[in-house]
Each structure stands twice: as C-alpha cells, then as structure tokens.
Design a protein around this nucleic acid. Structure first.
Lengths: 198, 198
DNA sequence: TAATATAATTAACAATGTTAATATTTTTCG
DNA sequence: CGAAAAATATTAACATTGTTAATTATATTA
C-alpha cells in the first residue's frame, strides 16, 4: 500500500486552516496565535511550521473561504430581488453586515499586515475586487436598462468599494458613528447618494 | 525655591511624545516600541510608565500634533485657490498625499487598535471628523454659490470622508491599486465623481 | 528487523509590553 | 546642615508571542 502523501499533507493543512477560521470567527484576530491554533488543530505549535511558512501565511489562506461565505450570505439576503439598483443597495448592505458580524474577519481582510506574502499577492487583489464581484450583475442590469451609462457604472463600482471600506474602517476600528443603528442609517444614506436617489 | 512640578512633568511627557512622533514619522509604527521610544527620549523604558498609562495611550496622544501638521500641509497646497469645488478637490488630494508620505501616521490614524482609551475616545471622533474640518469652508462656499444644496453638501462631506479612508486603506495596506501613479489617478476620478463633473 | 527517512514534539531564544524590586535623587524639616 | 521621608528612575523579572533548533517518535525501506 503506497501512502497518499498529497492527501495526508492536504488534510494536515486543513486541520490548521479550520482551527484558524474558528478562532477568527469566534474570539477574533486578537486571540489568534500559533499556540491557540495548534491546540485547536490537535497538534503542537511547531508542527504548524511544517505546513505553513508562518502564521501570517496561514491566516491569509482563510480569506478565500470567508469570501465564499460572505458571498453566500449576500445571496441569501437578496434572493427575492431582481438585479438592479435596489438589489445592488441591498447587497452592499449585506456585505457590510457580514463584516460587522465578524470583527475578526473584518480585521483579516482590511487591517492585518500582509508580511510573508507581500501586499501584491493575489489575495490582496481579491479583497480589493470583492465588491466588484458582488455587484457585477446589478451594475450590468443598470447599464442594460439605461439607468446608468458605462462610465457612471464604473464610477459607482469604484465608489461602492471605497465607501464600504471606509465606513467599515471607521465603525469597526474607531467606533464612528457610535452605535449600530446610526451606523447603518449613515450607510444607507451613503449608498443612496452613490447610487442616485431614483 | 519651589519647584514647578507641572512644568517638569509636562516636559517629561514632551520628551516621550517627541520621541514617539519621530519614530512614527521615520521608521513607522512597526518600529515603535517602549524601548525604542525611551532610548530616544533619553530615559529607561520603565520611566515611560510614570508618565503614561501605557504605550497605546502615548501613541494616540500624537494624533493631535499630526492633525495640525497635516492641516498645515493642506493649507500650503491650496493657498492659491478660492474656497469652492476646485479647492475642495485639491485639499482632499493633499490630505491623501500626506498619509501616503507617512505610512506610520496612516497606521496610527486608521489601523492601530485603541486599547487603553477605548474607541469612543475624543481622539477617535477627531479622526472621524478630520476631513469635515478640512473641507468645511469649501462646502460652505459651494452652498453659498448655489452649486449644491445643504443636503447634497452633507452627502458630499460624508462621501469624501469614507472614500478617502477607503482608498487609503486599500492603497497603504493592500497595495491596491498597485502603483502611486495609478492610485492617484483613481483618487482623482473618485473625487470628481463625488463632487460632480462641473 | 535494523537502518534510514519523515514527522512531531519539547526546549530554547528573541522581541515586546508590563510590573515589581531596588537604587537614586530630591524634598522636607528638626 | 543633614538625616528621614517622598519622589523618581533604573534594573530585574515575568508573561506572551513568533520562530527555530534539538530531540524524540513514527513510518518506510531494504
């Protein structure tokens, strides 16, 4: 019987990745450290280094999974709508809500330094373009029904990305505005302004 | 002779604050630690704790000074303009440039966790409202010459704040877009869209 | 089944923030 | 002035964390 090294290694990596995700979603980024991850994975902390360059690499590997999860959440929240302005707004709100629900994931996407992998890593680009992906169909629909020309759609795309990141940054990291209610009201206002008051 | 304790203490605090500012502007936040600050201040690292609750408190005390410096920079860059749309745009560009020049200051304002003081501290609010302060006169001018009504001005204010923070976050922390030139072009485009193409 | 390769663990180190214990300086006041 | 008391500063020490080195255990091979 020839052992499947591939499979074994990929399982081992999976245990550490899974542990990392759990901690990020639960206790958050502050609670994430090699020892905590390894313990939850059921191995010693040094073993982690046989499968990942370092903790930083490991933590950014989780980004993809969280993007998928966030995307599902956004889908769920907007199933009933047709692509277009209204759905676009709802989708951006869902995107924002996802991160407020999981501060640790917000920190991972936007705050945590990318050491090992360098910020020019595909992961950085994926984070940057994530809202584009979420809003693609709606922007296309808006262009389709001549609600916006191509250039405007591009500007909206850009504005949604920046505004969402900025709002989340202030709210999650600086508690501004200072309550969830107020924050979400401001967010709606911001989105309405970007999308036009139609 | 009765010694002026007030003055002595305020000088001591000043030495540490000055050292902290130098490190932040120079080597950046990553290089900032108790021992480095104390050495530059000319004291032992434990002495710092006689004047500040902890390093986190000390570092956020610098925010005010940097805001003043940034404001001066913005003034310098826009002296020749009259208050109004064009100057507003220039001022936001200057604001953005200031932070790209000093990554450590960007991290202090937007990234660094506020531990000791809690995010509801006045400092957090000051950071949040900083762009409001910088753009106040121009927005007033635009309302004055009926270029925008009050509600639009308020929406612009909000949008500038969020867009600037978002763009800086992506550029400084995720290297997106991936060169300074491209970044500044995108920023101009974003600002033009928010301010209207007039 | 012994030798070798592989993988996992414990030990160790460096960096950092913080506090405790000690030393030094300054102030007070007989 | 000069000792006692108060204040301030310094060094030692500790805890946490990331990472690597040394060691042990496990699996593979011949």
């Amino acid at each position: 019987m020839t052992p499947n090294k591939e499979l074994q290694e990929s399982r081992m990596r999976g245990y550490f990745i899974e542990a990392t995700r759990e901690i990020l979603k639960g206790e958050g980024l502050k609670a994430l450290n090699v020892r905590a991850v390894a313990e939850r994975a059921g191995y010693s902390y040094a073993t982690l280094y046989n499968y990942f360059k370092d903790l930083n690499e490991l933590v950014f590997i989780c980004v993809n999974d969280f993007m998928l999860e966030c995307e599902s959440f956004v889908e769920d929240q907007t199933r009933q709508h047709q692509p277009g302005r209204q759905r676009l707004k709802r989708r951006m709100i869902a995107y924002i809500q996802y991160f407020t629900q999981y501060p640790g994931i917000f920190e991972l996407f936007f705050i945590e330094r990318m050491n090992s992998i360098g910020s020019q890593h595909p992961t950085a680009a994926a984070i940057y373009r994530f809202t584009d992906r979420l809003t693609e169909a709606d922007l296309a629909a808006m262009v389709g029904e001549s609600m916006a020309d191509k250039e405007t759609a591009e500007n909206i795309r850009l504005s949604l990305r920046n505004a969402a990141a900025g709002m989340l940054l202030f709210y999650m990291n600086r508690m501004q505005p200072d309550g969830y209610r107020t924050f979400m009201e401001t967010a709606e206002r911001q989105l309405d302004f970007i999308l036009g008051k139609d």
